[in-house]
């Protein structure tokens, strides 16, 4: 699925549309270069899922992880930009996160082969007109819930 966005509010709308379909145990992998819109997307998603439009959602680049309480479960917002080896995710509480949380991961490339297969993947690219192109890939087992 391809979504073209022209401004930040379009990216936020795309995040809202996805938010309603997420359940505990889901994993969302957000790929794309610096400034491609991953954190803007994650922030909108977290605000919808926590039901708080003013929720403070700082970039987790430095802290590596921020967590939030939401009715559907705990939201784990990872940013793996700074990790050096994939195994470091275990020290961030990865196993607990994927057990019953809703997991959002920026820079999933850093996980290498540890990246989960049954995850929703979104690739962010900047388009020549300063907008963004989001390419969403839904794994087979989640197709029913996400394509309806």
């Amino acid at each position: 699925m391809r979504i073209d966005t022209h401004r930040e509010s379009d990216t936020e709308n795309a995040a809202r549309a996805l938010a309603g379909r997420l359940r505990a145990g889901d994993i969302l992998l957000l790929s794309g270069d610096l400034g491609a819109g991953k954190t803007v997307f994650a922030r909108a998603l977290i605000r919808v899922m926590t039901g708080d439009d003013n929720m403070d959602v700082p970039s987790p680049t430095f802290t590596l992880l921020q967590t939030y309480d939401a009715p559907e479960g705990t939201l784990w917002h990872f940013d793996l930009y700074r990790i050096k080896s994939p195994e470091e995710i275990y020290e961030l509480g990865w196993e607990e996160a994927i057990t019953d949380g809703i997991v959002i991961v920026e820079w999933p490339e850093k996980m290498g082969s540890l990246a989960p297969r049954d995850a929703v993947r979104i690739e962010f690219r900047t388009s020549p007109e300063a907008g963004r192109i989001l390419t969403v890939t839904i794994p087979e087992k989640l197709k029913d819930r996400f394509s309806s």
Binding site: L34, G35, T39, R43, V57, P58, S59, T61, F62
Partner: peptide, 18 residues
Amino acid sequence: GTTQDDALGECFDKSAKL
């Protein structure tokens, strides 16, 4: 006051990287 998104040091580091 606090940042609504990136920290200032992060903005310096990432801009430098770009």
